[in-house]
Amino acid sequence: MNIRNVSLILNRELKSYFSSLTVYIVILMFLLMTGYFFYNLLATFSVVSYQAQTDPMLAKQYQLLNINETVIRPLFGSISIILLLMTPLLTMRLFAEEKKTGTIELLLTFPINDVDVVLGKYLACLVVLLTMVLLTATYPILLVVLGEPEVVPIATGYLGLVLLGAAALSLGIFTSSLTENQIVSASMSFGMLFFFWLISYSVPLVSAGLGQLLSYLSINEHIESMSKGVVDSTDIIYYLCFIALFLFLTLRSLETKRWR
């Protein structure tokens, strides 16, 4: 690995991301969708807490809940799903476009290691992801200004979102290395992310041991506890392994290009 080469690729990819309209539209749509969820959750919360002032029964029930439980946790849930929907749109071009236009021929004959290429490209989409996720921080900041939510679960929730997004990106960059068609790449990422997301739905149908394995493999099970403020090392290890595995597969896929 050569840091200079990684940063050269990273810079080029970032410029290319932000010189096209696509990324702005993806970010805008992401903010609109998450904003819509935030608005609804907040509106429900305020209506219910207003009613609770006159209804002692409801108030008692509601005291058990707080703004963290009623707004922030569901918000993280929706953001994570929307994030999974958006990441394939960020990664689909990374290799597929280079193959389509033929620039891969020069890229792979430049004197740089394939690792540098993969890392540079991966870091570039990670930067875009961080931008997207950080922009949603306006919602919890608003809550901090207006109310008194607990801050720790918000911070760990964001850690979870970033890890989940980073994992989804690694899968996306892998599918992009498999094809020269961006649509095919995005479809494959959607399919595989959907699989890793819904795998936990089969847990009740199988034996306990297998169920445990399936829920461990599920990509969104691991942000659950983080959005409650608990950071478990197994969750972090899961995401890091996921990322490492798919970056490794990307590398292999590039190498087979070179070897065919």
Binding site: R12, K15, S16, S19, S20, T101, G102, T103, I104, E105, L106, T109, F110, P111
Partner: peptide, 16 residues
């Protein structure tokens, strides 16, 4: 690769 310069036939360049 350190010692070559290559012009591919299709001249693939980064358009952006």
């Amino acid at each position: 690769r350190k010692r070559i310069g290559y012009l591919p036939q299709r001249v693939p360049l980064y358009e952006d």
